[in-house]
Design a protein around this nucleic acid. Structure first.
Lengths: 153, 153
DNA sequence: AAGTCAATTCAGTATAAACTGAACACTTTT
DNA sequence: AAAAGTGTTCAGTTTATACTGAATTGACTT
């Protein structure tokens, strides 16, 4: 049998890297990876010691992940510490965040577009195609989102 | 009539911000925005002076954008400088790059998955759902990509 | 209510990435 | 062939952001 613990820490590091690639803090990715792998609730303190990072970092990472609905804070009977667990729909929040960014970009471009006078024909066409790109992209993510949604929910 | 020049520089800055949000250098975004707005070829030197950045930055930005197929380097008769112009399918390359990142992440997760012994049932289920998420996301982008592709042909 | 324990905040530090500008190599002009 | 023009490279600097750790706040425990 393979060494589960090594697989686990490899996985945690991988997710850290992936997160960094997506523009998220590496530690947040590690937290996500750990909770994903273990499934069961892990305490605030355990996250800090196991990942060997400061409690301050854990605090900001879990808030980030909580805000996006990727993890949830749960209570454990007889325990004073906060515990964290992977959310029921961890990916929905991520997709929604991406969608929001895309929508914002689309709106920014359309704002510029609407300022341009009618004579600026070719420029208008290009900006239009740019905002169309974001529309299409948003549509693709929207589709992914609904697919992810009814996987479980 | 609205002041076109102000709209133009606003747009350029907006695209710079959007690029930064996507994890790309701000200057690369500005270059893209400028070429997008103007449509016609702009010289290497003009990019540097107009955006008020070093020639070194222009060099690396245009290479990045060229590599992704977002812009193209064109010659202008009687001119020694390189000129740059928005590519015919500027968005295709961007999407392809995003897809590649997603595919890589998916594979990483599946690598961990395949290492896990059969007893690790629940963990396997979670990692499977994680890689499924990337599959779904990739499908969404793939769809967007083909839509973008046949907008122009 | 004093003492412990837990999480957050925030000022300071470390790290990573972007950006600069001068040196370089190559090309064209005079 | 010297001079001027052009793009790239890269060592050094700046900037942005992640991270730390000590101070702080609040909530339990005795």
């Amino acid at each position: 049998m393979a060494n589960t613990h090594r697989i686990r820490s490899d996985f945690v590091e991988k997710v850290g890297q992936i997160a960094q690639g997506e523009g998220l803090p590496k530690i947040a990715g590690r937290v996500f990876g750990l909770l994903m792998f273990d499934g069961e609730p892990i305490s605030f303190g355990a996250l800090a010691t196991e990942l060997q990072v400061s409690r301050g970092s854990i605090s900001s990472s879990v808030r980030l992940l909580e805000d996006r609905g990727v993890i949830k804070r749960v209570g454990v009977p007889g325990e004073r510490q906060d515990f964290f667990q992977i959310a029921d729909q961890p990916f929905t929040g991520l997709l929604e965040g991406a969608l929001k960014r895309i929508k914002r970009a689309e709106q920014e471009i359309e704002a510029s577009l609407s300022e341009l006078s009618i004579e600026a024909g070719a420029t208008r066409d290009r900006l239009r195609s740019y905002s169309d790109f974001y529309k299409t992209l948003g549509g693709g993510l929207q589709h992914a989102l609904s697919t992810v949604d009814d996987k479980k929910g």
